[in-house]
């Protein structure tokens, strides 16, 4: 019985996923709030603070979209989703977008639309110093703790196979269990995205006894994604990210915004809607970028606040710097 229902459900899910609501922007406006799928708790990306307010890079991106649509970053409702069950709610229109540190891959893009890359991540390893391992290539025969239902597990297999090394995977349901298992000696190494290695290291009782190995074994471009079949909404989400990047590139931050509005630079005038109607073309308002930057900030501000040097995680910008500063973050121009 269970199997029949399951098969039926999957068949229907596949059959119906194509005809998702094609007017998300209108739905969001009518509802008066954006519904955003976020992680159930990922330090620096989405986690509730002491007052119960969601904070983090992924969360701030949702707030930026709300700011662009409503001129009010608080008009977002967060639906915290686990890594296993993150796609069904997006498919069934329970959420308007997924901003949940999801790696952009071809198979996922075949089912959804990725709006860009908010954080270029990569998978790394953490080991005990006492193990005297200096490179991931020395991990032959190691047992490795990881989290189930993520691309991490697959990358691990690829890396060890292509280097002809043996390994043993011990997989857990949540990040907390994984790091505790590693700490208690269940496995020799702990693997996950680099950004998380830093935050998980905060939870170890002698953080200095553990090292993060230099190898980055995979590309993990993390980005927000939406349903297929709604180009307007796709554009809104995509250009919210581009607007945050462009604002940083042009030196417009929440602090310099008022001066920037008086700027003579044509690029800044176009971006802030002083000249032209670029926001209206996207289905938003003329001052959409002003709203985003005023309420949430540009990409650099959001990065620093949540995961960068001024946060507990202290992750350096690395390849997430703008292309003008040696990184690979690049946004098409607003014009």
């Amino acid at each position: 019985m269970k199997r029949i229902v399951g098969v039926l459900g999957i068949a229907l899910a596949i059959g119906l996923s194509g005809q998702a609501d094609a007017q998300t922007l209108k739905t969001v406006r009518d509802r008066g709030a954006l519904i955003c799928g976020v992680s159930q708790g990922l330090p620096g990306f989405s986690n509730p603070d002491d007052k119960g307010t969601w904070t983090g890079l992924d969360v701030d991106f949702c707030r930026a979209i709300a700011a662009a649509i409503f001129n009010d970053p608080t008009k977002v409702k967060f639906t915290p989703l686990s890594s296993k069950d993150r796609f069904e709610p997006l498919k069934s229109s329970e959420v308007d977008l997924l901003s949940r540190n999801t790696t952009w891959t071809s198979s996922r893009d075949a089912l959804f639309n990725f709006a860009g890359v908010i954080y270029f991540d990569g998978q790394g390893f953490m080991v005990r110093k006492a193990l005297k391992v200096n490179s991931a290539l020395e991990l032959n025969g190691a047992s490795i703790c990881t989290q189930t239902g993520t691309t991490t597990e697959l990358n691990l297999g690829d890396y060890f196979r292509s280097n002809n090394m043996k390994y043993e995977v011990i997989a857990f349901g949540s990040a907390d269990e994984t790091i505790k298992a590693y700490e208690s000696g269940r496995c020799d190494a702990f693997t996950t995205d680099m950004s998380q290695l830093y935050s998980e290291r905060l939870k170890l009782s002698n953080a200095n006894d553990h090292v993060i190995l230099p190898e980055v074994i995979s590309k993990e471009p993390l980005g927000p994604l939406v349903r297929q079949g709604d180009d307007q909404w796709f554009d809104v989400v995509k250009w919210t990210l581009f607007a945050m990047l462009n604002a940083e590139e042009l030196g417009v931050s929440s602090k310099t915004l008022d001066d920037a509005l008086k700027s003579k630079q044509p690029e800044i005038r176009r971006m802030l809607g002083v000249d032209g109607t670029y926001g209206e073309q996207l289905g938003l308002t003329r001052d959409w970028v002003v709203r985003i930057v005023r309420h949430v900030g540009n990409y650099g501000e959001v990065f620093e606040r949540n995961v960068g040097a001024s946060s507990k995680l202290g992750i350096s910008r690395g390849i997430n710097r703008l292309w003008t500063k040696g990184g690979i973050q690049y946004a098409p121009p607003i014009r």
Partner: peptide, 19 residues
Amino acid sequence: LGQLRASFADPNWATPVTL
């Protein structure tokens, strides 16, 4: 328990004994 797990992710309280 869900609320508990979410608060484990707060970097402000990430310590070895939080869990």
